[in-house]
Design a binder for these strands. Structure first.
Length: 719
DNA sequence: CAGCCTCGAGTTCT
DNA sequence: CTCGAGGCTG
């Protein structure tokens, strides 16, 4: 049905007509499940539309498919900030670890310290796909986002709309006005095999495993590609909801099914009491046995506290909920040989030995290298070149050497001798007493360190200069065009007078092999954009030891400008105790970090680099809010609560709340929990057996509450 | 001073 | 993702 655009119609009319047609076929396909045209015809129609849209970008219909296709910026996806952060799960690998986790829950919720009280757990298979958050407003799908870093994900709405398992309009009734449903996008084993056959036929690259195929398919800028990929979706959790509609995980599942979602099966509610984990163990065994005939890949099971009120009270630790855990199957292992062990030099000079392996497939991915961490690790496992070793992928990602198969060791094998000289610069390596790592002292005289530092300077968490990756940094260094960070920014201005080591003229970038006018312009544009980094990125880029994203943010929040930070450092260097104290007063900065900051500032070479950058007008911004990465910061404490901003101390035996729950609850209401009573303390919550703290509170005139008073206070609504 | 939690650094492959 | 180390808490 690929009609030629009708010539005497204006492009705008044609685009409108095509857009309407596409919308109609989308609806037929997804909502009514009754397509009138096949996929090839649909594709042709879409291509005709896109082709014309490209020629007449100003004539695009406002409601046209471009809002779903090709509307994203050329360099990738739009970002979506999650209303409720998407967390990851803590893993356990044994019944022992599972028992510890259950015990932790019983300790946190006071009334569950009686082991005869049963806890119901909702258990589901853990699908190997990628998590996705779907937002429904008044029953209509409005956006879809990947997990990303948990706080900010990629907008894949246009792709989600092509997945049959994802309802565009909720069925039934009774859903809240705002409903965020979270689940897993995945590909079945059969579809994965079929897709790879198709890829072969098209001469395209095969996917290594269903997970990668699903990820690759969802992360397509062109939704017509996603539409032709057989993706599925399981719902398993909620994000933001405007009103509660269930009391338990299992009840929530039933509602979601009613509203048109597919659930992951088999799922089961398992009960634990008196320490007996056998119902959970039985379900684990059942899934392990059925693993190969489920039709999709799973890597374990997810166990959730079924009661939602308990989930709410249990809350989160770090990036994972306390109320759920992933019980993982043992990772797949494989055996291969170590062909060589070579040492890499990192930007800090740290030497990392890496095993080069005879390539082997582990968990669907070809592995050819594995880190050996350090000399002790090699000695402990007595790893030698030529050995047969067992490899597994830790957390299904990073390959690791589990053990050596000694029975297969060649007769002539010798211990691995850790190098005494840097493989890059030849300096004698150093290892401090009690330190696990070996370092090259070469610093800026070591070419490997210079290159790694420059790579770090432009890397994603630092200045994030697109198009200037490891390979191109190496290239510019090799041509002698970049020696220090500031050279990156003068690169373009110097372009017409580039000289090589022999004084011979180097041609303009666009004439280099593999480069053209487009890629050259793109690179220079990216460099220009990097002249105004955020405070945090700029500080990270400097590569001060122990100063990464979080610490940079901490310093930024306190000092606001680079100049204020440098000024305070300079004062501290000249012996000003008040300046040092200012650093140590920042929550999270201690002696050791201060020392590294001072060492950095005292080094003349670092001063030069910093001055050169500032002179070249690479100017970091004042601190702005920016994306917060800590979940703790993400969920704003309830500032309406009567205890918001107050400092509380707990003492004695609490009978209804556990210490940890009392603390977590107080913090979520905006209070600060301190360890000892001082003049800053607003409340002392004293249970039976309170001792010196109660005395001190009386002396200072601090208000003393019983546990019951405290609970009442927390449930008071301010008027 | 021990036992948390958090952070940084280095890691693999697509 | 994992490791080790720093910093805070009790």
């Amino acid at each position: 049905m690929a009609q030629d655009p009708i010539r005497d119609e204006s492009p705008q009319d044609t685009l409108n007509t095509l857009a309407e047609e596409l919308a109609r076929h989308d609806a037929l396909y997804h909502q009514l499940d009754a397509p009138e045209i096949d996929d090839a015809q649909y594709d042709a129609l879409r291509r005709a539309y896109l082709e014309l849209a490209k020629q007449h970008p100003d004539a695009l219909p406002i409601q046209g498919p471009q809002t779903r296709v090709g509307a994203s910026p050329a360099d990738g996806f739009q970002k979506i900030t999650h209303a409720v952060p998407m967390l990851s799960l803590e893993n356990v690998f044994s019944t022992k670890e599972l028992a510890d986790w259950v015990e932790g829950i019983r300790n946190f919720l006071m009334e569950l310290r009686d082991p005869s009280i049963e806890i119901r757990f909702c258990c589901e298979p853990k699908i190997d796909g990628l998590s996705c958050s779907l937002r429904y407003e008044r029953g209509e799908l409005t956006s879809a986002a990947t997990r990303g870093n948990g706080v900010e994900g990629e907008d894949v709405t246009h792709n989600a709309k092509t997945i049959a398992d994802i309802p565009q309009q909720l069925k039934g009734s009774g859903w809240p006005d705002i409903l965020e449903v979270r689940g897993e996008v995945y590909m079945s084993d059969a579809d994965f095999l079929r897709l790879n056959e198709e890829q072969d036929r098209l001469g395209a690259k095969r996917f290594a495993n269903p997970r990668n195929a699903a990820a690759g398919s969802l992360r397509q800028l062109d939704a017509t590609i996603t539409r032709n990929r057989p993706l599925c979706f399981f719902a398993y959790a909620l994000g933001e909801i405007s009103a509660p509609f269930a009391k338990s995980q299992s009840e929530m599942r039933l509602k979601l099914a009613e509203w048109g979602f597919t659930l992951n099966e088999p799922a089961q509610v398992c009960t634990e009491r008196n320490g007996s984990l056998s119902p959970l163990q039985d379900f684990y065994d059942l899934l392990a046995a059925r693993r190969s005939d489920l039709g999709f890949s799973i890597d374990g099971l997810v166990i959730k506290v079924d009661r939602l009120d308990w989930q709410l009270r249990l809350g989160f630790v770090s990036r994972a909920p306390r109320w759920a855990v992933a019980w993982k199957f043992p990772p797949e292992q494989a055996s291969t040989q170590i062909e060589d062990i070579r040492c890499q030099v990192g930007r800090t000079g740290r030497i990392t030995p890496v095993a080069y392996l005879k390539p082997i497939s582990v968990g669907g991915v070809l592995v050819s290298r594995a880190t050996l961490h350090n000399a002790d690790e090699i000695a402990r496992k007595d790893i030698r070149v030529g050995d047969s070793v067992i490899i597994q992928r830790a957390g299904d990602v990073i390959p690791q050497v589990v053990s050596v198969q000694l029975s297969q060791r060649p007769a002539n094998s010798v211990h691995y001798l850790f190098p005494s000289q840097c493989p890059a610069c030849g300096s004698s390596l150093r290892r401090e007493e009690g330190d696990a790592d070996t370092y090259c002292p070469g610093g800026l005289t070591c070419p490997a360190q210079v290159q790694e530092r420059l790579s770090y300077f432009v890397s994603r968490q630092a200045l994030d200069i697109e198009g200037l990756g490891e390979k191109n940094i190496a290239l510019f260094i090799e041509k002698g065009l970049i020696h220090s960070p500031v050279d990156i920014f003068t690169l373009e201005a110097r372009e017409s007078s580039w000289l090589d080591a022999n004084g011979k003229t180097i041609p303009l970038l666009k004439y280099w092999d593999g480069w053209g006018p487009q890629s050259a312009t793109k690179l220079f544009d990216a460099i220009r954009r990097a002249r105004e980094p955020s405070f945090e990125r700029f500080l990270v880029a400097l590569g001060i030891r122990q100063v990464g994203e979080a610490t940079a943010r901490l310093l930024g929040r306190h000092f606001l400008t680079i100049h204020a930070l440098l000024e305070c450092l300079d004062r501290a260097l000249s012996g000003d105790e008040i300046a040092s104290a200012e650093f140590l007063a920042i929550d999270g900065i201690g002696e050791s970090m201060l020392k590294d900051l001072l060492d950095f500032r005292a080094e003349p070479h670092h001063r030069e680099i910093l001055n050169a950058l500032l002179n070249e007008r690479v100017l970091p911004d004042q601190v702005t809010e920016g994306p917060l990465l800590r979940v703790k910061d993400f969920v704003p404490p309830d500032s309406q609560s009567p205890i918001a901003g107050k400092t509380v101390v707990f003492t004695g035996t609490l009978e209804r709340l556990s210490r940890s729950e009392a603390k977590a609850q107080a913090e979520s209401l905006g209070a600060k929990v301190a360890g000892s009573v001082s003049s800053k303390t607003d409340f002392l919550v004293a249970g039976p057996g309170a001792g010196s703290k109660a005395t001190k509170a009386a002396e200072l005139g601090v208000r003393v509450l019983s546990e019951q008073d405290w609970i009442d206070l927390m449930h008071t609504n301010p008027e």
